[in-house]
């Protein structure tokens, strides 16, 4: 059976996906922040900051307004059935983005890098950013993350070996890079962050893998035991840095560490660190002729 897209229906579904991503903080992020709040000293700045963040998340959900005014780079990972026109899906996403901007779910964020002019509707070269994949299922799966500029500015890429960190071309070297990057970020990425780590690849693939980790559930366990160990060790050690929420000091510097890997050239060993702010906004749409659902 040929998979048909009802453009109007998909348009409305994508606007709703954007609204959910922008205004509803995922449940796993909220419970990780609640855990952080309860681990901080009563009455400390760290605890009151986390309280305000949680209060804000609830307010945004109730009022259907953006959690954060920086609605960020809109990153889509879209999986489509065989034979679906990618250009058609792309067009629907771009138009839905313009509609969502009009509705103030998104801030008009996209600036021409040459002239400095804001396009006013979030359209632009490579904006929104869409990655496509194909699968055998008769439905579209669309994941969206909104990644703000503050967290993107403290994201980092290292090349191993790194003399300054005495970091070799192994997992111990990778570990040192992440400690260094999160320490350098301090509160600037809006801590507590979620750390997406991409090991290997070329520079672009490494960062792609790192950013893809943002979609994982904070409470999941990496199926690869080596990567699972690294996630656990980094989570524990990053939280003793004492940077705390917004860099005010405290035990809650990161909410989670998620690791992925890609094959690399023998000559290249990149460590890509995608820092995601506590306002880890992402949502998923499942779309078929029978079903429109979100999670």
């Amino acid at each position: 059976m040929k998979f048909e897209i009802d453009e109007k229906k998909l348009h409305n579904a994508v606007v709703e996906l954007i609204r959910r991503a922008s205004t509803q903080l995922p449940a796993d992020v909220i419970s990780a922040m609640e855990k952080g709040r309860d681990s901080e000293e009563p009455g400390s700045p760290a605890q009151s900051v986390l309280k305000l963040m949680l209060e804000n998340a609830q307010m945004a959900r109730e009022d259907e307004t953006p959690i954060c005014q920086d609605t960020g780079t809109n990153i889509y990972y879209v999986t489509v059935p065989v034979g679906v026109s990618l250009r058609k899906v792309e067009k629907v996403i771009v138009e839905a983005t313009k509609t969502a901007t009009e509705k103030a779910y998104l801030r008009p964020n996209m600036v021409d890098s040459i002239t400095g002019r804001n396009t006013g509707d979030n359209s632009g070269v490579m904006s929104p950013l869409i990655h496509f994949e194909e699968w055998d299922e008769p439905k579209i799966n669309m994941q969206l993350a909104l990644k703000g500029g503050g967290s993107e500015n403290v994201s980092a890429q290292y090349k191993l070996p790194d003399n300054k960190l005495k970091a070799g071309r192994n997992l111990d070297g990778v570990y040192k890079c992440v400690i260094d990057a999160v320490n350098k970020a301090q509160g600037l990425g809006c801590a507590p962050g979620i750390i997406g780590l991409g090991i290997g690849g070329d520079r672009a693939i490494g960062m792609l893998i790192a950013k893809k980790q943002i979609f994982r559930n904070i409470d999941d366990t990496n199926p690869d035991s080596e990567m699972a160990k690294l996630e656990e060790k980094l989570y524990k050690d990053l939280n003793i840095l004492g940077i705390g929420p917004m860099g005010f000091g405290g035990n809650t510097t990161v909410l989670g560490v998620k690791v992925g890997a890609a094959h690399r050239l023998p000559a290249s060993f990149f460590v890509s660190i995608a820092y995601m702010c506590w306002a880890d906004r992402h949502a998923t749409l499942n779309y078929s002729s029978e079903e429109v659902s979100y999670d």
Partner: peptide, 13 residues
Amino acid sequence: LHAIGGTAALLAK
């Protein structure tokens, strides 16, 4: 003066 990053709904109020 430090405002809390990301608390945009609260601050807009």
